[in-house]
Amino acid sequence: MNKYQRIIVIAAVVNIALMFLFPPFLDNPIRRGVLPSFEGFYPIYSAYGVKRIHNELLTLQVLFVVVNALLAWLLLDRRTASGEVPEFRYTRAIVFFLAGNLALLLAFPPFESYASLVKSQAATFDGYYFAFGDKRQRNIFVPLLYLEIILVVINVLAVWLSFNALRRAELFAKEKILELAQALPPGELAEVSETLGYRALHPVESGLGSGPDRRRFQDPRYRGPERRRGGDRRLKTRSAA
């Protein structure tokens, strides 16, 4: 399990825990012969035993989270020949993931039940159906659809912030290590650079353009090839003079 997969697992566990803490409940119809329908989400400690849990809806919610987590796990299960996690543009991947989830939610939205003959009875949630299927004449159960979209967006933003914080912490740690490595001998400095995967330059004597403000190693935030070749030409010019 790499560091990105660990974040996905934590997000999935938190979501499933929230689903069991606030499960969907059915109402208790007063009239005889009326089937119970979806009423809302309540804390498990306050409504359990008084109302029945909507097991079908809870199962769909858990499966939705598990499938998303498993898909993200498989996509992030990538390593190089050296066993390291390759760099990738996680922002673009997360945007595609968000678009896919929103498309799925809009393609199979929650629909209301058939209109009741009793005018005082409010519309209730009936199930998920294909938006362009034979149930398209019904009204969409808007509160549940809004809640699903909000939760998906919150999860995507949380994962993006976690990935971003992880990447920044990793780059900051490598930069600090490379700065401390400048005081090492050339042999040990080369070993540290090879271990970290960056090419560090051994500090040279102080001079014009070669002071502490000069970049002495490859910037880890720059993903392209290193364009500098050889030593410092200004030092060669001074030595020749």
Rank of each mutant, 00 (worst) to 15 (best):
E112K: 09
A81Y: 01
G187M: 08
H202W: 10
L75S: 08
F64C: 08
P36Q: 07
E87K: 02
V9D: 09
R214D: 04
S82Y: 02
V9Y: 03
G33I: 03
E188P: 00
P203Y: 06
R136G: 01
S116F: 00
L105E: 10
E87W: 05
E39W: 04
N28Q: 15
T195W: 09
V67W: 02
R233A: 11
V65I: 15
I30Q: 11
Q218R: 14
G40F: 00
E112W: 03
E56C: 01
A47N: 05
D126T: 03
F172V: 10
Q182G: 10
R228A: 14
L201C: 05
R216M: 06
V159S: 02
D219F: 04
Q137W: 11
G224M: 00
A12T: 01
R78P: 00
D232W: 06
S46R: 15
V156Q: 08
A107Q: 07
R221K: 13
N155V: 03
P23E: 11
F217E: 03
Y222N: 12
L70A: 15
A131N: 02
A165H: 11
V118E: 09
A181G: 12
P23Q: 10
G133T: 02
R223M: 09
F217C: 05
S162G: 15
L145H: 09
G197T: 07
L208Y: 08
I150K: 07
Y129V: 01
S120F: 11
R214T: 13
F172E: 15
R214Q: 13
R136Y: 05
Q218D: 06
R78I: 08
I140E: 09
K174M: 05
R31V: 14
T59A: 11
S193L: 07
A183I: 12
V50D: 10
P185S: 15
L117G: 14
E175M: 08
F163C: 04
R223S: 14
R228P: 00
R214V: 09
G230K: 09
R79F: 03
N55Y: 09
A115S: 15
R6L: 07
A131G: 00
L196H: 06
R234P: 00
A165P: 01
R79C: 00
I149A: 11
L235C: 03
A99I: 13
E179M: 09
V65Q: 02
L201K: 07
E226P: 00
S239I: 13
S120H: 06
D232F: 10
K119T: 02
A81I: 02
G207V: 00
A183T: 14
H202Y: 10
R136K: 14
L21G: 11
L57A: 08
L180M: 10
S120M: 06
E205L: 14
L117A: 08
